[in-house]
Design a binder for these strands. Structure first.
Lengths: 227, 227
DNA sequence: GCGCCAGATGATGTGCACAACAGGAGAGTG
DNA sequence: CACTCTCCTGTTGTGCACATCATCTGGCGC
């Protein structure tokens, strides 16, 4: 139930946990952005050197990534980035379709003006992608959008589990785009429209509509992905 | 997404992961059965000696328990069993009420005769509790019942998250009983009736009814607990 | 030439000593 | 007597050397 996001750069000295969270989020992003491809071997010693620590604390990070299903370690072989089987991908998406409804119905915190402004900024980023398309930038935007919409609920366990599920499969979409199995421009168009719709519903205070729209988006996204 | 349950005692030599899962489930059970009270300090060296390993692998177990919210480690102070605040307890229960519906509607595996027999055995254990009431035995039965009903869905992520949530708050009920804030005999009566109802619905193949019954049971259980 | 086994190699897993840190006890001072 | 500073003790966090394991390679027997 521990929030695994790096909250802010504090004034005090960096504690061990701060380093841990930082490195964990860092490696997780690399995996989600396909900088580490599925099947690729991660060297503990190399990563430890890069982050300026020893293997011991790094192994704790890898252990957590393994719990989250992003890597698997095999004694004597190595630590490899996991691939995702079709069946599990489908299971994750089916579950996410249900959880997204809860995110706008369970312990919701109504959005204020500041929040709406942040979503508007995200919409601007989506629009900007049209003129400068980039798969990585898209992935990053989608992640930020996801985390922002997750703030609508204050239910901590729901947040934690939704996050785990999201990061578990976030790289698949990017993988499909890279393999040219999804048309990037079309995907960006669709996404911008979706963000506009969500923003509209947020302004009207219709969170139920937000939930069901997101649910259909996830469903359609999955359908396009396995097409 | 890794299944953290000890599946079976294999013939081959115990691998590191087997030991890890075993020790993890062991300590988790102790916490859930209040053998380690909330706030109690767990000594890494003592636990390591007890399990016949060094601190290094044991710390990995504790790290996972910390991720699951069962303990917290503070540098220079110690590793303490967490307490659960009222607000978080409520959040967990609200979420569990929703997830339990999914467990009988998302990727369900219809129960067969063998499965029904297992539930019947659980019912027998519930009935037996009436003549030999025991809070710990009740807790253990509730856990086994939970894990058994969880098999109704084959959605792995749903299973994993439901389990995490369950074990996060499993000890609270036992705590309330120990503090005599809940009447054990009455609780056992109610529970046996619930199991009978669930078994009935299972035999009829009405999984939807099972889900909604469980949902109401969770809701009522929470209401009795905070009374 | 073919098959098999021993050794080399490189990876993760473990044990251990030490560093870093928080909290308490006790002496010293006003 | 109250307060504070310092040292001491116990705990978690880290670095490092070694154990354990899987894989590959090369030589040996046939």
């Amino acid at each position: 139930m521990v929030d695994d996001e790096v909250t802010e750069t504090r004034d005090g000295p960096l504690t061990a946990r701060d380093r841990f969270d930082r490195i964990h989020a860092d490696i997780r992003n690399r995996i989600c952005l396909l900088e580490y491809q599925p099947g690729e071997k991660l060297s503990e010693v190399e990563l430890a050197e890069e982050f300026g620590i020893s293997r011991t604390p790094l192994r704790r990070v890898l252990a957590r990534l393994e719990d989250e299903g992003l890597v698997t370690s095999v004694h004597g072989v190595g630590t490899m980035v996991t691939d995702i089987e079709m069946e599990e991908l489908a299971q994750v998406y089916r579950l996410r379709k249900e959880l997204v409804l809860l995110q706008t119905s369970l312990d919701v915190a109504p959005p204020d003006a500041v929040y709406l402004a942040r979503v508007e900024a995200l919409l601007a980023r989506a629009e900007a992608l049209k003129t400068a398309p980039s798969a990585k930038a898209f992935s990053t935007l989608d992640r930020d959008m996801f985390l922002t919409l997750l703030e609508l609920t204050v239910n901590t366990p729901l947040r934690t589990m939704s996050k785990r599920l999201y990061f578990r499969t976030a790289r698949i979409w990017l993988q499909q785009v890279t393999a040219s199995k999804i048309d990037l421009m079309q995907e960006i168009e669709v996404y911008a429209r979706e963000v506009r719709d969500i923003l509209e519903a947020l302004k009207l205070g219709d969170l139920d509509a937000v939930g069901h729209m997101r649910r259909s988006h996830i469903s359609l996204s999955f359908a396009r992905m396995i097409k």
